[in-house]
Simulated scan of single mutants.
Amino acid sequence: TISFIGTARALDRALVNAAGYRIHTTSVAPFKRDLRGIVAAASMLPATAQARRILRSEGASVVVGMGGYPSLPVVTAARLARLPALIHEGNAIPGLANEAAARLTTNIAVSFPETVRLFRRRSPRLVGLPMREAITRFSREALRSEALESFGLSSELSTVLVFGGSLGAVRLNEAAIGLAARWSAREDVQMIIVTGSAHDADVRARIEPGKLTVRVLPYVQRMELAYAAADVAVCRAGASTVHELAVVGLPAVLVPLPIARRKEQHANARMLVDAGAATLIEDVSATPEYLDSVIAPILGDPAARARMADAARSVARPDAAEAMAGWIMSLAEARRA
């Protein structure tokens, strides 16, 4: 059986319950590098005790920490209970929770090649990032017709997909609005703009009617269809996004989140940029004019797009979920032996 320990956020509970699993919570506070860090440190002791009780009640054999502050008291509880623990770092630069958790276990999985050297005096294993089967089994050829039909797009035109993650990104939404205005008279390109639920109405109202076909959506339930419809993506560089782009082989213009203290998204982006699968643009430079100048040569050169797609797939790790599952089961079996 599988049980989850997470936060009390409604979204966490909804996602886990919808998948058919049970979720527990502890009282651990978010980690911060300011005075709030004192609160987080003080919350660790009771949260660890709570996590230990949960592990005991669930009869846990293995603990898997996927990063984020809720995982640290659980990994700590596993260490105290002498249970095997495996941690996974999704970003190229480890977060605070996993930096601490790495001192409590030798089982460390990472998603990006450059992360291996950042866990000093440890021996992380590069496995990639676990993803949904709809992504790992992605076939553009099999999905293309369904994808274009679902968005009401033409198979004769090039498609630009702009999205900013699950919550959207104001900078990318503004850039998309500007691009739509610049391209309003074009009949050789079409756009999908995924705004995030909070921004949908505003973006939709500001798209000026013209010859350009623009589909504005608050979110996309089946992201694989958006990838299959697109010829190039303009997006942030979160860990999931970068790994999904690699697996589906979609050329990209990456605009990393600028406010991250450690520039995690810049580090994530390097995997695709160094492979020749993406171009990186700083957030401040993501104007419609500059994006147009970067996107135009990609759209205008099918051979270049094909090379970028091949480069993306060359760094993909679609078997990450299987690798993680096998590792977890081996730890459980070793404990039972």
Results as ranks from 00 to 15, higher is better:
Leu118Ser: 09
Phe119Ser: 09
Phe119Met: 11
Arg121Leu: 12
Arg122Asp: 01
Arg122Thr: 03
Arg122Ala: 11
Arg122Ser: 10
Pro124Gly: 10
Arg125Thr: 15
Leu126Asp: 10
Val127Gln: 09
Val127Met: 14
Val127Asp: 05
Val127Lys: 11
Gly128Ser: 09
Leu129Asn: 14
Pro130Asn: 07
Met131Asn: 05
Met131Trp: 01
Glu133Lys: 15
Glu133Ile: 01
Glu133Met: 09
Ala134Pro: 04
Ile135Asn: 06
Ile135Pro: 05
Ile135His: 07
Ile135Tyr: 03
Arg137Met: 06
Arg137Ser: 14
Phe138Gln: 03
Phe138His: 02
Phe138Tyr: 12
Ser139Ala: 12
Arg140Gly: 07
Arg140Asp: 08
Arg140His: 04
Ala142Ser: 12
Leu143Thr: 03
Ser145Tyr: 00
Ser145Ile: 04
Glu146Ala: 15
Glu146Met: 09
Ala147Leu: 05
Leu148His: 08
Ser150Gln: 04
Phe151Trp: 01
Phe151Tyr: 01
Gly152Val: 07
Leu153Gly: 01
Ser154Arg: 02
Ser155Thr: 11
Glu156Asp: 13
Glu156Cys: 00
Leu157Ala: 13
Leu157Asp: 07
Ser158Asn: 05
Ser158Gln: 11
Thr159Asn: 01
Thr159Val: 00
Thr159Pro: 00
Thr159Phe: 02
Thr159Lys: 04
Thr159Cys: 11
Thr159Leu: 06
Leu161Gly: 06
Val162Arg: 09
Val162Asn: 02
Val162Pro: 01
Val162Ile: 15
Val162Cys: 12
Val162Tyr: 03
Phe163Lys: 13
Phe163Leu: 14
Gly164Ile: 08
Gly164Asn: 10
Gly165Val: 10
Ser166Val: 04
Ser166Arg: 08
Leu167Thr: 13
Leu167Asn: 13
Gly168Cys: 01
Gly168Phe: 00
Ala169Leu: 09
Ala169Cys: 11
Val170Phe: 07
Val170Trp: 08
Arg171Ser: 14
Arg171Lys: 15
Arg171Thr: 15
Leu172Ile: 09
Glu174His: 10
Glu174Asn: 14
Ala175Cys: 13
Ala176Asp: 07
